[in-house]
Amino acid sequence: MTDISTRSAGGGAGGAGLSLRKLAPAIFLAPAILLLAVYLLYPLVESFRLSLLDWNGLGADARFVGLDNWKKLATDTLFWEAAWNNILLAVFSVVIQMPIAVVLAVVLDNAGKGSRILKILYFLPLLMSSVALGVLFKYFYDVNFGPLNALLDYVGLGFLAQDWLGDTRFALGAVIAVVCWQYIPFYMVLFMAGLASFPAEISEAAKLDGASEATIFWKMKLPHLKGTFRTAVVLSVIGALRYFDLIYVMTGGGPEGSSELMATYMYRNVFSSFQLGYGSTVASGMFIVVILIASVLMRFSKRYETEV
């Protein structure tokens, strides 16, 4: 009994212990909160402050211009075209990726032994950095030496060959294709998990009731994936609104701004034109757009959820 009683011999041992317990949450949270304050919260606020300045970022000649930058942003067609491109990216991401991902999930669900190895191989693009993919596909799309045009030529569709990234009509689409190529497997795995959670007893019961595989899929499994769809849409829209790397590497926003996104536009303003003030306005504007769309989306998907 020695150990326990010596410890308690201290009598009011409770005092120190209890106050430490009171402080514990603060101690455990301190590192995270400190880092988030310095590298997320402060920059966020600071960005809004910088958005009120006219400054090239170098000298001490920062000039307070009030809401001038914001007024400029409101009528800056380049920004709104960029935002529109973000929305196109979001919409096409959802419209192209979701159906293909569901089909692939169903295919792998039925592929038996091969499904594991296929899943592993499909997933490979997700390990690549956007820079690596950007550079790879820049050459893939190359007018003269790119394998895509060569491939079209080879199958007799040579007339379809294009300057994919150099043509204002195709640049954004070409990049969207790469985004889809990379992310479809991600959503596929998401849907596979959704399908796997479909209770086997239900489809067995339905089969006993005479339902065909097709009926079970359309009437039961697909509705079962509703929640997964919701998650997938939210993820892919938010991702699309913040997109930067791949576009920056592949087209830099060009040609003629045809593939410009909010983030690349901001980057150009700050680090190419050295308009730190206006660049920060663009960044803050982008922040507002993203938060607005994200909260509308989440509100909507939550309401949807309660209806189900």
């Binding site: 326990i4 410890r7 308690s8 009011g12 041992a13 409770g14 212990g17 209890l18």
Partner: peptide
């Protein structure tokens, strides 16, 4: 004979 209301669990024997 000890009042334990403020004693930590580990010290209550």
């Amino acid at each position: 004979d000890r009042v334990v209301d403020k004693v930590e669990p580990a010290d209550r024997q």
